[in-house]
Simulated scan of single mutants.
Amino acid sequence: MSFNALYTDLSGYYDLMCVDIDYPAQSNAIHRLQQIFGNGETAHLDLACGTGPHVRHFIDFGYASSGLDINQPMLDIAATRCPEAQFTLQDMGSFEVSAPLDLITCFLYSIHYNAGIEKLKMCMTSVHRALKSGGVFCFNAVDKEKIDNGLFVKHSAKQGSELFTFRSGWHYSGQGEKQSLRLSIEKTDADGTQVWNDEHPMVAVSFAELVTLLEPYFEVHLFEHNYEKIIPWENTSGNAIFVCVKK
């Protein structure tokens, strides 16, 4: 089963897969960064928005929010969660907007869904084109040079009589521009246990390379991957929040 097919088939369970994510804290942190670095306006787009939980929080903050994703079943759920928002089926590598934006976000390391460095450059060009002067692009990323292939995260959640166990982790060979997200989903119910295993190719990039790609378009600020406190990145951790102000 391909990654997209897996996500399509399990789109109704996506929120269970992300049940341990602190969406309010993540959304509030980027809202605070927008207040510090942004232009004070509220036209917002969330790239790879999934089922729309971040969009929901930004709407509640007073933003005119929208979202895009390549998975229509996810967008259908997002539209139910956020009927005020506009959602479009688009690839974040080459998207279009109807009016300039003040804030573009990309949560949950989804910037790595760009298939390679050239696609990542296209994404940055699309973001730059879509933002107003002084607009802000916020996303989180992982440095390929600091990936530990032995680490993974795991959590379980129940829905009705079904028990789900989710495992995911990064894998990088140590060279090149490809890394992968390895994912396992296990569902147990009265009929037994089903397991889906998948490995999705993603772009691998170091923070130094990423800053070099961004700097022609943006003033780049890096912060520690901490949604409770705004702390400048200290050049040691392998995860960071990027705040990019359009030049």
Rank of each mutant, 00 (worst) to 15 (best):
S2G: 07
F3A: 14
N4I: 11
Y7D: 00
Y7V: 09
T8E: 15
Y13C: 09
M17Y: 12
V19T: 10
V19G: 00
D20Q: 03
I21D: 05
Y23D: 03
P24C: 01
Q26D: 14
H31T: 05
H31M: 04
F37Q: 09
G38L: 07
N39E: 02
N39W: 01
G40V: 03
T42N: 14
A48D: 07
C49R: 02
G52H: 10
H54K: 01
H54L: 04
H54V: 07
V55M: 02
H57K: 13
D60G: 13
A64P: 05
S66T: 09
S66E: 12
L68E: 14
D69L: 07
N71I: 13
P73S: 00
L75V: 10
A79C: 11
A79V: 03
C82Q: 07
A85E: 11
L89F: 05
L89I: 08
L89H: 13
Q90E: 13
Q90H: 05
E96V: 12
S98H: 13
L101V: 14
H112G: 06
N114G: 11
A115Q: 12
A115D: 15
I117P: 14
K119L: 06
C123E: 08
G134S: 06
G134E: 04
G134Y: 02
G135D: 04
V136S: 02
A141Y: 06
A141G: 08
V142S: 14
E145Q: 13
I147S: 08
G150C: 13
K154T: 15
E162D: 14
F164L: 15
R167S: 12
Y172T: 08
Y172Q: 11
G174T: 12
K178H: 05
E186F: 10
D189M: 05
A190D: 09
G192N: 02
N197Y: 06
E199P: 14
F207L: 00
V211W: 00
L213F: 08
P216A: 00
Y217F: 13
E219L: 06
Y227N: 03
T236F: 06
S237M: 05
N239V: 09
A240V: 07
I241A: 01
K247V: 11
